[in-house]
């Protein structure tokens, strides 16, 4: 893939990642300006913003995790890795907006409420932990950090898998018993996580076969 094509694609990906934010910002601005019109955010604007930012964070994070297994499908897909950092940062951006909405519109910036939630509500603990894990990854996403951290960088950035799992757990723990909405995204994440060992297995088999071809006497 040519550099020019990648730049063009990057612009498109930026637009796609920003779209949910721009739409929500426009809807919020509209509803605050025109309180008597039918609300674009719907009947429950607090919940609408909270759900939309949470979904965006989870989806973008999971798309970013799909890059590694997908590029192993073919050598010609190597360029995909150049999109991983921006996707990860967008996921962190939405997770941060999600957290800010919780702090302001749910906990009302009230310390006792916040501490109470953090000490007793498992879905909040899971969600907040996921954000905390993403924070150092976002901070060390620069080229400089990659160089500085060397081989530790990759170890550190494996935390993204833990963050994604915590995000899904957070989702299951907030929906009501009997609601199966998180099923689809859970299956997608499971496939992505299982793809790694699956590829390793396929690779190992391939290597074995090649070895067998090289030394037919054995």
């Amino acid at each position: 893939m040519s550099n020019r094509a990648i730049v063009a694609l990057k612009v498109l990906v930026h637009l796609a990642c920003l779209a949910p934010f721009l739409v929500l910002a426009w809807h919020t601005w509209h509803d605050l300006r025109h309180p008597d019109a039918v609300a674009l955010l719907g009947p429950d604007p607090t919940a609408a913003l909270q759900h939309a930012t949470g979904f965006a964070a989870l989806r973008i994070l999971i798309i970013s995790l799909a890059i590694t297994p997908v590029r192993r499908l073919s050598k010609s897909l190597g360029w995909l890795v150049r999109f991983r950092r921006m996707l990860g940062l967008y996921a962190f951006f939405y997770a941060s907006v999600h957290l800010l909405i919780y702090l302001k519109l749910y906990a009302n910036l009230d310390w006792p409420t916040l501490l109470n939630d953090l000490s007793r509500r498992r879905y909040i603990i899971a969600g907040f932990s996921a954000w905390l894990l993403l924070l150092p990854l976002a901070l060390t996403s620069t080229k400089w950090s990659i160089r500085k951290l060397g081989k530790h960088w990759q170890t550190l950035h494996r935390l993204v898998y833990v963050a994604a799992i915590l995000g899904i757990v957070h989702y299951w723990w907030i929906v009501k018993t009997g609601v199966r909405d998180p099923t689809k995204i859970t299956i997608v994440l499971a496939i992505i996580l299982l793809a790694r060992p699956a590829w390793s297995f396929v690779d190992a088999r391939r290597r074995q076969r090649r070895m067998a071809e090289v030394s037919p006497t054995r």
Binding site: T28, L32, P35, L41, P43, D44, T46, L105
Partner: peptide
């Protein structure tokens, strides 16, 4: 509680 239909910063 969040009052349905109220404006964003006045729901709670």
């Amino acid at each position: 509680e969040r009052r349905i239909g109220a404006s964003l910063f006045k729901q709670r």
